[in-house]
């Protein structure tokens, strides 16, 4: 298995671990009271902002650890640049990821149209963001293994 394939698998696993652990941490902090209160909106705002920050930092740390483990176990250096195949696969991954997120976004807006509570919209938006991240990594893994 090549560096890029291993990296895609690590990305999928780390995305799942980061999201699940963050949700488990934030779930008990959901404010009581009215679902449409200012506190609830503040909660969802901070949920998305801190998830973004936490996710970026965790991905960087996991990436550094992965590169160190890769160098030790394979005695190879990781590629330092992205060539035409990498860029093509990256484009396809972004396309699929973007498509999934847009579907999620439209469903989230649809939930408001059918008078679902606003927290439903946030849950759908955050979940579609997570799924789109995973789809991006799975797309990369698929194309690195099966070709373009």
């Amino acid at each position: 298995m090549t560096y890029q394939e291993k990296k895609s698998i690590v990305s999928v696993i780390s995305a799942i671990l980061i999201f699940v652990s963050y949700c488990l941490y934030m779930y008990p902090r959901f404010p009581g009271g009215g679902l449409e209160s200012i506190e609830a909106f503040r909660y969802w705002g901070s949920f998305v902002l801190f998830l973004t920050l936490f996710s970026i930092v965790a991905h960087i740390i996991i990436n550094i650890i992965f590169n160190i483990v890769f160098r030790i176990t394979t005695k190879e250096k990781e590629p330092t640049f992205a060539d035409e195949l990498d860029r093509l696969i990256e484009l396809k991954a972004h396309r699929n990821s973007f498509f999934v997120f847009i579907i999620g976004f439209l469903i989230a807006m649809g939930s408001l149209v059918i008078l679902q509570p606003s927290h439903m919209m946030f849950v759908i938006l955050i979940t579609s963001g997570f799924i789109s991240d995973v789809i991006g990594s799975v797309t990369k893994l698929y194309h690195y293994r099966r070709g373009v």
Partner: peptide
């Protein structure tokens, strides 16, 4: 000027 992964993909006929 490419990565080894690209040469692997070319030889396998995947790219």
């Amino acid at each position: 000027g490419v990565t080894r992964q690209t040469i692997v993909a070319l030889e396998k006929g995947n790219y």
